[in-house]
Design a binder for these strands. Structure first.
Lengths: 150, 150
DNA sequence: CTCTAGTTGCAACTCAGTCTCAATTATGAT
DNA sequence: ATCATAATTGAGACTGAGTTGCAACTAGAG
């Protein structure tokens, strides 16, 4: 099912309305590749003449997340980034502390173990976060690599 | 090596001083069992007559983290909690969205896979976060379980 | 077309954490 | 033991991400 349709369906199912702002947001969110944050989005929307307030963004990103179109990635110290999820499958992240770059990885093996752990502890999993921090190839090479974890 | 000594060593190595405040903080941090946040700590310190300001706590928790005595656990939306690490080994967390309880799990298997992934992507890992969110046994049982992820 | 529940922008607000600065203090050198 | 000095502290102002209250606006069911 195309993303726009899927979103419309989600909205009507929850008695939410397809406003001009949500339409603009949807369109942009689908066209970005890579990870983005609220300010990126705000800038992009501004550039194309769509006036959408910061509050509206903050109110609607969770809607997009819950409809499954995007995914929220919590970075250190409560900085949130998002990524498009349409047509992609689950993966986790490696965050470079040098250049801020985000690599992706996936491991069915880890997923399996997680489920196993939950079963054993009678825990009903609704989601998870798995992030590896460190330095990517180029940053580890030059001097920058010896940063600290806090 | 006893924790206090280890801390003293860390301090002198970094030209940091063993102040009254750091001593109080150390003592409390070692005695708490389970996870705690800055306010817990502040309350505890207050109750035992140690006056340590919030700023000082925020300044020194990273020092304790870097000396390896405690570990920082980043929760959703930038709420940080800490846990004692002396005499314990690495583990990850399952957070109950119902009661807020934190269970621990460990999997050498997952650790191994992580390292494998890093090697393959030429990524130098300095740390990681692996959290499972969901509902613990008792919360999943009663009605509370169907909460939402955002 | 009408009605109404949902939505928006704005600005004021919250909350965790950081920073500034003057006063204080631990520690290595004398 | 005393000194010199670099580190540390508390208080409160500040920051930045995100939230909220409210009056005006609007999508969409009937």
């Amino acid at each position: 099912m195309p993303a726009a349709e899927r979103f419309a369906l989600y909205l009507s199912k929850h008695r939410l309305k397809m406003t001009r702002e949500r339409r603009a947001l949807l369109e942009h969110v689908l066209s970005v590749r890579g990870h983005f944050d609220v300010d990126d989005l705000l800038r992009r929307l501004g550039r194309t003449g769509h006036r959408v307030s910061r509050a509206t963004l903050y109110r609607n990103l969770p809607v997009l997340v819950e409809s499954g179109l995007i995914h929220k990635v919590e970075m250190a110290r409560g900085q949130a980034r998002y990524e498009r999820m349409v047509g992609r499958h689950h993966h986790d992240h490696m965050v470079c502390l040098g250049c801020g770059d985000i690599l992706e990885f996936e491991s069915p093996e880890v997923e399996r173990i997680q489920e196993e752990v939950c079963r054993r502890k009678r825990f009903v999993m609704t989601g998870h976060t798995h992030q590896i921090r460190g330095y990517c190839g180029s940053c580890a090479g030059d001097g920058r690599a010896r940063g600290k974890e806090r």
